[in-house]
Amino acid sequence: MGHDHDHGHDHGHDHGHDAQDAISFRVRALEKLMVDKGLVDPATLDAVVETYEHRVGPRNGAQVVARAWTDPEYRAWLMKDATSAIASLGYTGRQGEHMIAVENSPAVHNMVVCTLCSCYPWSVLGLPPTWYKSAPYRSRAVSDPRGVLSEFGVSLDEKVEVRIWDSTAELRYLVIPEQPAGTEGWDAERLAALVTRDSMIGVAKVSAPA
C-alpha cells in the first residue's frame, strides 16, 4: 500500500509515492526503449534539460526590457516587430518563434495566460513556473484578473484597463513593464537586474530598490 501524504498545498504534483514510482518507472522504460531503438541520443536528453535549466530563462527577457527602457529606437522596433528585435539580442527559438511585445502604461496593465494549455515565451522567459500552468491561474486570469493580481500583491486603480492576452495561437506575448520611478538614467545592465520574470508575465510591477 502506498502512504499518500498531504503536502498541504496543491501545485500540480501527483501526490503519493506509488504514483511517483509508477510514472518514474514508465519514463525510464520508454527512455531505454527509445535509446535501444536508436531513436534518441541520451546526450541529447541532457542537452535539452541543460538548455532550459541554465541557458534559456528570464534573464533573456530582462535584457529585452532594459534595452527597451534605455533605447527609444529599440523600443519602437520591439513594439513594431518584436520577433526581429528580440532575435537581434540572440534570443530565438522554440516557443518564441512569433513574438509580440505589449507595454504597460499608467492606463494599461497587460497580463499573459494560456487558458488551454501552458503556452509561454520560452525564448525570453524559459519554462513557465508551476502556477502559470495550474488550473487556478488558467481559469481565473481571464475571468477574475484583478483577483489573481491581488494574490500576487498587485492592486490597480479601477480606471486602469487590465488587458489579458490568452495565448491561444503560436504568438507569444512578452509584457514590457513600466520603468520604476527613480531609475532614470540608469544603464541597461543595472536596470535588467530589477526586471523580474513575474513582471514580464504581468502579475507584478517592477519596483526600484528601497
Binding site: 510514472i23 518514474s24 527512455e31 534518441v40 541529447t44 535539452v48 535549466e53 519554462l127 508551476t130 502556477w131
Partner: peptide, 25 residues
C-alpha cells in the same frame, strides 16, 4: 493561485525525462 517555494523547474528526475524525451522525439 499557489506559488511554490523555490519554484523548482523540475520536481523529480522523471519530469526531466518526460520533458526532454518529448522534445527529443
Amino acid at each position: 493561485v499557489v506559488q511554490e517555494p523555490g519554484e523548482p523547474l523540475f520536481h523529480a528526475e522523471w519530469e526531466k525525462g518526460a520533458f526532454s524525451l518529448t522534445l527529443a522525439l
